[in-house]
Amino acid sequence: MNIAYTAEALATGDGRDGQGRTSDGKLDVTLAVPVEMGGTGEGTNPEQLFAVGYAACFHSALRVVARRQKADVTDSTVAAKVGIGSNGQGGFGLAVELEVSLPAVDAETAQALVEAAHQVCPYSNATRGNIEVKLSVAGVAA
Rank of each mutant, 00 (worst) to 15 (best):
A32Y: 06
Q119V: 13
Q119M: 11
E97F: 02
G43S: 03
K70Y: 07
A79L: 08
V52S: 13
V105G: 09
S76G: 09
E42C: 02
I3K: 13
P34Y: 05
R68P: 01
D72M: 05
A116T: 00
A71C: 12
C57D: 07
L10V: 15
V137T: 13
Y123H: 06
A141N: 13
V114R: 00
A141Y: 09
G90P: 11
P103K: 07
S101Q: 12
Q69H: 14
G90Q: 05
N87Q: 12
I84G: 08
A126E: 07
H118I: 06
D17P: 00
A7Y: 08
G18D: 00
G39C: 03
A117V: 02
Q119H: 14
A7N: 05
G20Q: 06
F50V: 06
Y5I: 09
G88T: 12
V96A: 06
V82A: 05
A51Y: 05
Y54C: 02
R128P: 10
D24C: 08
T44E: 01
T44Q: 04
S86Q: 12
V133N: 05
S136D: 09
D75Y: 02
V137E: 08
K134F: 05
C57Q: 05
K134W: 04
T74D: 14
G83T: 08
E99R: 13
D14A: 13
S60W: 14
R68H: 14
L98K: 02
H118K: 01
Q19G: 06
V140Y: 11
A79P: 02
L10Q: 15
T12V: 06
E97G: 07
A112M: 11
V140M: 08
P103T: 10
T40C: 07
V120T: 12
C121Y: 05
A126V: 10
G88L: 09
G53C: 00
P46Y: 08
V120E: 10
E42Y: 01
G85D: 09
P34F: 03
V120N: 01
G41P: 02
H118A: 09
S60K: 13
A61D: 05
V105N: 11
L113D: 03
I84Y: 07
D14S: 12
L10M: 14
A142G: 14
A56T: 14
Y123T: 03
E132H: 13
T127V: 14
V33E: 13
L135V: 07
